[in-house]
């Protein structure tokens, strides 16, 4: 027992100050991409051609449109672009309420806004999550598990993962929704008491990710359940997930936020 006490003093208090303190992410962290608002040269589609998930398209005015929901945060487009029109910031904030809000095109990003007042009052101080893996490679699961550790400490916000869908308020879905998991996912959603939410975590759950178009998967959680919050990433950093959920609950800044 003395050893445990001694080790406790050595290990110390580790919960990060975020969101009241800085996020302390390293230089090479691939956070939200920054897309140039200048039109690109006619005939050049190097970025779109190199993107593994076809997340990049061009608007009529030749401005780049990057779909964050399909983005798997690799570096292909950065390397391919001769003009440096796309680059990564270390900003971890990316979650959005709708698929359209995930499309970056040089304007400011539209981050997730909070739920309506009634739901915010209900879940503001106590939100229970039920996780369903529907074909995820396990990367997103690992980051969700990390949210429970002493550094990110999800429980300090009154948010916890629970064992049964009946105890849960929000369904956290990962994976592109494989054929075999479709029924189970729907059953879990139906087993939850109302009011309920659905959070899609990771590129696969948002759009299918690297498995988009595979005949054994259904290109994301949208195919099976109505989604309230999309958190892009491959896998999303725990702070990205935390930021998204706190924004949804209105515990960061209220209302629509533009950054």
């Amino acid at each position: 027992m003395w050893k445990i006490i001694k080790t406790r003093f050595q290990q110390g208090y580790r919960t990060s100050a975020y969101p009241d303190g800085p996020s302390a992410l390293p230089e090479r962290f691939r956070g939200r991409p920054v897309v140039s608002s200048q039109p690109c040269a006619q005939g050049c589609s190097a970025c779109a051609d190199s993107c593994p998930t076809q997340a990049i398209a061009f608007a009529e005015d030749r401005r780049v449109r990057l779909d964050l929901g399909k983005c798997i945060f690799c570096t292909e487009c950065i390397t391919a672009c001769p003009e440096g029109a796309i680059s990564y910031s270390t900003d971890h904030r990316m979650a959005a309420r709708s698929r359209e809000d995930l499309i970056l095109s040089g304007e400011e990003a539209r981050l997730a806004h909070a739920l309506d007042e009634k739901t915010r009052k209900l879940f503001g101080r106590s939100l229970k999550l039920r996780e369903v893996c529907a074909g995820s490679c396990n990367g997103c699961e690992a980051e969700l598990t990390a949210l429970n550790n002493v550094v990110f400490d999800l429980s300090r916000f009154g948010i916890q993962f629970v064992a049964s869908p009946r105890h849960a308020d929000a369904l956290v879905v990962t994976g592109p929704v494989t054929d075999h998991m479709r029924g189970a996912l729907r059953a879990a959603y139906d087993a939850m008491p109302t009011p309920k939410l659905v959070i899609a975590v990771g590129a696969c759950a948002v759009s299918g990710g690297p498995f988009a178009g595979s005949p054994q998967a259904h290109d994301g959680a949208d195919s099976t359940v109505p989604v309230d919050l999309y958190i892009p990433g491959c896998p999303p950093h725990p702070l990205t997930i935390l930021d998204g959920i706190l924004r949804l609950l209105g515990r960061l800044e209220g209302g629509r936020e533009r950054v």
């Binding site: 593994p52 074909g135 075999h180 998991m181 595979s214």
Partner: peptide, 18 residues
Amino acid sequence: GYQHRGVEALFCGGPDRR
């Protein structure tokens, strides 16, 4: 088998950008 995403099939015809 619940996690079957068809990985091996996605490689066929590659290596491609994915």
